[in-house]
């Protein structure tokens, strides 16, 4: 009965030139609706309600260094290391006011904006907007800069993706570029512990504890270019990691002496990399009952 045209899509007659379909996904996704008032209200309730509850149950975060942001006015660029899908929610619930509720998250265009549903959800729940991981494309960078100009703070993971093996990856230039471009300071942030709870490739959550350490805002100095600033940001995050694992004074001294442990791990490959990770991976074999149950 209800088959065929007009109940199904029509066939295209032969010999007709097909117009290119308008792509509304990936980097071209228009997330501006998620920064309108209704979506912001919805996000406020999502972040302060289910997201905060889930984060505190799963990740029981300890938040350090918030005093370094005391009294600051927006906007700021928050640049954090990246291990897990939990990182964004953890950051969104940890970033202090007045930044928390005027916040956008730079999310991988290919991953989060691959289809309409995940795109809409990401934009609504996290205030995500698409950014291309591999390169600083004109479009996404322009958009980020505009948002910063409009007083939106930005959360970005400069490693460009979650850690594949527990070690950090080298920083890409996005955060540094935006800071230089707009003059907005970058706040280095280190997240510890999310890799144990939900690492890349995990199939189930293991609730644990996490530590979020905020650093001093970095201001681009005279003569900095994006690469140099990116290196500084990476070093600041590494120092924060050191600080969070040991103590501040030790971290400062190692930073001064240039002996801060690297976040990217040794230059080796294979098992030696994993081996060097030691306890930090937290991937222990699940306890399995070996004795036959009779």
């Amino acid at each position: 009965m209800l088959r065929g045209f007009p109940f199904a899509a029509p066939n295209v007659p032969e010999g007709v030139e097909v117009l290119p379909r308008k792509v509304r996904r990936g980097a071209a996704y228009d997330s501006s609706w998620a920064r309108e008032q209704p979506a912001r209200y919805a996000r406020f309730f999502i972040v302060e309600g289910p997201m905060r509850a889930a984060v505190s149950t799963l990740a029981s975060p300890t938040r350090k260094g918030l005093d370094r942001l005391a009294g600051l006015r927006g906007p700021l660029i928050f640049a954090a290391n990246h291990h897990s899908h939990l990182d964004a929610p953890l950051m969104l619930t940890s970033i202090p006011q007045p930044f928390r509720h005027r916040m956008v998250v730079a999310a991988a265009a290919d991953y989060f904006f691959g289809n309409q549903v995940t795109a809409a959800l990401s934009a609504l729940a996290m205030g995500a907007f698409p950014i291309e991981r591999s390169r600083v494309s004109r479009g996404s960078a322009e958009q980020a800069a505009e948002l910063l100009e409009e007083d939106w703070s930005l959360l970005i993971f400069p490693e460009g993706g979650r850690s594949p093996d527990g070690w950090g990856q080298g920083h890409r230039g996005g955060a540094a570029f935006l800071s230089l471009r707009t003059g907005v300071p970058v706040v280095p942030v280190h997240l510890a512990g999310t890799d144990r709870i939900y690492p890349r490739g995990a199939t189930r959550l293991r609730p644990g504890s996490t530590t979020v350490t905020f650093g001093h805002p970095l201001q681009p100095a005279e003569g900095d270019d994006a690469r140099r600033l990116a290196v500084k940001i990476e070093a600041a995050v590494a120092t924060l990691a050191d600080e969070s694992a040991t103590d501040w004074w030790g971290a400062r001294r190692r930073a001064a002496a240039g002996t801060t442990p690297s976040l990217t791990g040794p230059g080796t490959t294979g098992w030696r990399r994993t081996w060097a990770l030691g306890d930090r991976s937290g991937r222990t074999r699940p306890a399995r009952r070996t004795w036959p149950e009779l």
Binding site: G71, L72, R73, P75, L76, E149, R181, T182, G183, V184, P185, P217, Q219, P220
Partner: peptide, 12 residues
């Protein structure tokens, strides 16, 4: 011309 850098300032 690039905008003047925003410095982390305190509310005054």
């Amino acid at each position: 011309s690039p905008p003047a850098p925003r410095r982390p300032g305190h509310e005054v």
